[in-house]
Design a binder for these strands. Structure first.
Lengths: 241, 241, 241, 241
DNA sequence: GATGAATGAGCTTTCATTCAT
DNA sequence: AATGAATGAAAGCTCATTCAT
């Protein structure tokens, strides 16, 4: 039974101000959340013990059970909070002023920064993806929500930039996110900033190409056949017209 | 002391008996390897206990220590074997006859198949990447070797297809692998085959574009400045020339 | 410090408010008592956690410490209340009007009903007997008091019924109570009402026999030697005269 | 997975002699069983920790899990072993030579001894009855088996003694066992040997009466109506004919 | 080479209790 | 009187590893 579940068994006066004790409780909760995020991301969920988290947070073990009900509950909370930060990062990357091309460049730079400055975010999400898919329905649901929201945010961002929202845009956004994931994954192993620059360079070129071609298509009118019907890539060696 | 380290100090009391023992030993080893691969991939290294592996393999726990010296040693062996299979998969995708464009399409289809038919391979590698980077030098070394070889194989394959080997090709290959990883990761969560089709469709278009543009550049001569200097992507909305 | 120990040091700021508080306090206390009785009886004292009791009672854990000082104190209170009910049950069984034989039959029917309708009572007393004898002096004292009073009540009842109070009557009463306990114990396992009927049938016959023979003896005069001296049961096969 | 469940995963030469290691294993198992029996009986199952048992047995905690799989498994094993001893005790009490009346007296003396010399047996069974009815199906099954066998043994014993087996005999045996249980329960609280003597004295008189009357009835022929139909106990005060 | 047993550190979780508000 | 939070000991159990046979 964690605080959110604990019903108000008694009708209360409901004084708005929180007492000192409750305030301290919230602080404990927060410290646990922060430590857990860091450590789950660094070592994975299974390899991190509750004692590890608590030592780092300066809180006794039983507090985890007071605030989150179980290790699993702590994870869910961590994911939930992380999700927001993650998506906010993506959104902040895309939603800025400027001309379309600049904005896209800035958005990609933003993603790149995310990879370098907040690796915990991505590590955590990815390791959950690998470690705990299928086992726990709730974890899975949280992850799905996170990624769906991220994709939607990116799709909206691009649509706003180019002024249209062609049908294939969602897929392009999904591919971009997937590539971001993959690049991040590789960066975990190599930690080579120059390589990171090069990869994001190529990624940008690919994105621009895919988005441009969607845009062109949308301009010419979506009436000519199934979407993507005319988008068979040209032969290699032939310059694209 | 695992078998490979142990000298041939065994007294041979008749090769018939010995070979029977050795044969059974190899069978146990193999079963362990197979079970471990599956389970490490499914649940991650930390979350899989030696007992889990042994139960599945029908072998007693101490056998792991005879064959692999430790849980860590079992992991190393698993990674080593998995690596080969993984790279062979990539290679087989690329190295086939036919005209360039067809070969690329086939290569991408091959990767897609890898994602669906051998998820254990990728899961294992990726989860190792996330779970055990930084902790264990040997695991890291094995992973680096695997990914380097995969990238080299893909670079070679593309180079052979297009007949030239421009400087940026390695990066493109790396991006392709990264995207593959990312797509796989997403597929773990969604398991939506139609989405997989769409993603690979966009990936193909992106690859063709990147490779073509490298090819064109190589044709025009690689002499004009730093690689990629003239490759600033055009404005969105302007059709690429 | 539990309420009974606490002096009347409370400042009375208006009896209306106070009595409301007290009323609510009593309600909480009562709910705790009821839940604890049920759960201690069902699962035993050790296997029941304070949280179990509180969840069921809809009261926070610290309330237990306010009302009863400790888990042990809660138990003592529960036993005390239960004792009264238990003894009242026995008394009600015996103390009724009618001719002797009828009254005994009714008394036995009353006991039988007790077994079926108020199992918590007996379970609780018995499990305390087994779980906590030797450990805790207070629990032991409470239990002794309960059983002594029950035996006295039964002895009195029978004495009143048969009009005399021969020396062995206390022992017969004790045996009856012991048999009741034993039958109840078996019923916990089997829950077979027909078997319960049969057992109580035999018990009634045994009681009638023992009481009759005490009565006869008392009639013939209690002067001939030690009590029970002439009461050696006859040979099996010989009909009792 | 406890030893009995662990299948022979490999075909073995099946040499009959047990190795030193296995022998020591059996000794450990036995010590655990003995300590557990004592402690579960003394304090109850829930109140006894695995550490308590292991400390007393001089064995490490994990050994419990090797031999019995869980605390519950240890309990089941304890009950199983205890059962045999219990029943053997009952049987030994009844099955002896001599004339019927003597044998019955000896049997009752045997039960009385059981109460005094092996209280652990009865305590354990009874506390399981109270503590764990309904929760665990296996425990319940074991208990049922134990009590059924005990009743059957007693029924057989009496039948052999009196030479006939009238229909109500099973019930009488059940009542005797229940009374034994109840007397034991009371003795846990009072520990008064004189009282014990008196109670067993009355019990013997009751048994003789019930058995005799069954015997008589069987002699007269079981044809006259439902069993027990004519056995309404006489009025108190009237001497039984 | 395989097996059954042992080992002890460490895991997640529960619990009775305390305390400030 | 009641509440939410904290506390630390201890519980049941798992695990990687070792070892004699």
């Amino acid at each position: 039974m964690c605080p959110s579940d604990r019903g108000k068994s008694t009708v209360r006066g409901g004084s708005g101000r929180i007492s000192k004790r409750v305030a301290q409780g919230l602080r404990s909760r927060d410290r646990l959340l922060r430590s857990a995020t860091r450590q789950f991301a660094e070592r994975g969920f299974s390899a991190t013990s509750i004692e590890d988290v608590c030592r780092d947070a300066g809180v006794v073990k039983s507090a985890v059970y007071w605030h989150f009900d179980s290790k699993e509950g702590l994870l869910t909370a961590v994911l939930e909070e992380t999700a927001t930060a993650w998506i906010d990062g993506i959104l902040a990357s895309v939603q800025q002023t400027g001309d379309p091309r600049e904005r896209l460049t800035r958005a990609i730079a933003g993603m790149r920064e995310l990879v370098e400055t907040r690796p915990a975010l991505l590590r955590l999400l990815q390791s959950m993806l690998l470690e705990r898919t299928g086992e726990n329905a709730e974890t899975r649901a949280v992850l799905l929500r996170v990624f769906d929201r991220a994709r939607a945010a990116l799709t909206d961002g691009i649509a706003e930039v180019i002024g249209v929202r062609p049908p294939g845009l969602e897929t392009v956004a999904a591919l971009v996110l997937a590539s971001l994931d993959g690049i991040f994954l590789q960066h975990q192993l190599r930690r080579d900033r120059a390589e990171l620059d090069r990869l994001f360079g190529e990624l940008e070129r690919a994105i621009v190409h895919l988005v441009s071609s969607l845009f062109d298509e949308a301009q010419r009118g979506p009436a000519d056949g199934a979407p993507g019907a005319d988008r068979t890539p040209p032969e290699i060696g032939e310059t694209e017209k």
